[in-house]
Design a protein around this nucleic acid. Sequence first.
DNA 1: TTGAAAGCGCTAACAA
DNA 2: TTGTTAGCGCTTTCAA
Lengths: 342, 342
Amino acid sequence: MYSMTTSAVHPPRGPVTRKDVARYAGVSTAVVSYVVNGGPKRVAPATEAKVQDAIRVLGYRPNAAARALKLGSSETIGLIIPDNSNPFFSQLAHAVEDAAAELGFALFLTNSDGDLAKERRHIRNLAARQVDGVVLASVLSEPDLADLEAAEIPSVLLSHSERPAGLTSVGVDLAAGARTAVEHLVGHGHLNIGLAMGTTTANEADDREQGWLQALEGAGLQEGPIARSAFTREGGYAAGKRLLASGHRPTAIFASSDMQAVGILRAFHEAGFSVPEDFALVAFDGSVEAEYSWPPLTTVEQPVRAMADAAVRALVGEGRGEPPRHHVFPTRLVVRQSCGCP
Amino acid sequence: MYSMTTSAVHPPRGPVTRKDVARYAGVSTAVVSYVVNGGPKRVAPATEAKVQDAIRVLGYRPNAAARALKLGSSETIGLIIPDNSNPFFSQLAHAVEDAAAELGFALFLTNSDGDLAKERRHIRNLAARQVDGVVLASVLSEPDLADLEAAEIPSVLLSHSERPAGLTSVGVDLAAGARTAVEHLVGHGHLNIGLAMGTTTANEADDREQGWLQALEGAGLQEGPIARSAFTREGGYAAGKRLLASGHRPTAIFASSDMQAVGILRAFHEAGFSVPEDFALVAFDGSVEAEYSWPPLTTVEQPVRAMADAAVRALVGEGRGEPPRHHVFPTRLVVRQSCGCP
DNA sequence: TTGAAAGCGCTAACAA
DNA sequence: TTGTTAGCGCTTTCAA
């Protein structure tokens, strides 16, 4: 008789499960689990070898959904940003991805496009997907986190300097950063320093404006003209044109984002002006694009990587479960040429 | 006796499950499923109302992990790109997210940073997470998809013009795009047209170089100088300096990416040259940054949104399950000022 | 050191 | 139209 006594000759149909591995290795499914997860029980070296072998031979790959169901955690975090095509946010997303990956978490990326309804939908969706946490760069300073709270999903807010009540957040000191920028302009001898201020859908105060004001007051200078527009290249372009047309034309401008500064640069170039000869310009964010504009932008750099680390750690790292707190990071003025420095 | 006959007075401890809803609404769990998913069986309007009510009152939210386990699909796709801080890829990621969201899929974002080992790790990880498909902008033209194949996860390659054997891919006709760009430069009367060519980790031929060559040949022109460097701003900067130093200095340059062109612009500005007066420049990609450089870049635009749509549809939309094919999209020359046009 | 088995929450086939 | 129920693949307690 040559009858087969085992059916494990060819890999089983469909995906290989832990059961197949157990059968092939001649152990129980529990042991396979212990081997795969390195615990919680120890396994005899010989047994472990058999299991590892079976895993390799069968090409076994654990099913994350089953694991997530059992554990109640998907080892995943969500990120909601206004727009991944904005270099500041794309750098942030990259950093958050890195930080999450280091802890074994995958990253769901979503764009709200500055749309409140979309933001809310993404929050809902992420909650339903049982993410272990969400990093939210909201269009509002007090976003609606009800869905996350109901699902007991921790969240951290990004880029808010004012302390949101009872929420963990990470950001920079916007006012201090802006002040440094404007003081630098004052140091160059400018007396009429304008402001290109970004606005979000929710028309909230932004500390960068305060910082600008404080620096002006500190130097005993009058308020320069203000142009409000979106935090984008287009917004900056429009603001630049308006500033040019303003009755009391400034000799220097502080822009509340690199993107706006890039737009302003374009408006000035088109009008035949040079920066920094005709106008000095200092921006905010410290994104890569600022380094490669012409002239390279002097800008207030946000420590994106550190912020991302802090956010992720607060969510799923050692900071998990700690009481809400606001992490403030220092900014750094990166001096290039747009301010008038050589 | 006042004993309670039901325990549904206050919401149950822990997360609300479909069972709680069923109990509260006085129906079976199956009915709850039918209501939540809108099928596969019809439910009487009155019953449906009761269930909806229970869902609202209890604050029920379906558990995606359980659903994924049962269905064998997580309604999730993965995206692997070299670098989300590169505007071309960040726009692509944004577009892929949009396209996926339209179909109810969430997006895992991962960056390979041009690192082959990292790319492989991400592929593995996405496979383990049972994504329903992955869009891969690989650093290689023939990436290692073994893990995806073993898990029977469909994949599509992005930005490859040569047809990868047996794989679905989407990209543009690089040679044709490059040809158009160079022909435009020829039309401006340039006789010595250089090339700034990007290189990836895997040193593979790129059809943009062919296109440049073809246009030159077609016009009976000699080959201009070539500078090879990374597809980045830094790479372009280095290439720009090399081109400037080259013995037979070109009067026009075709750059294989917007980022390189931005770097070249910087190199030229620093050396005191103007574009397009001293040098004409045409780039490739059509990213937003090209519009706001100075001067604005004439560039070969890739239809990112359409490409993302095609990729996602091939993965999880109507294209799913169809035999592998290569989707080629046409490029469009966006004429701005860097080429010498007014 | 290993195994048996309960059960995570959901879907859908089948029964009523 | 509604209900019952068998798993999906995994982890881990409890027993051996």
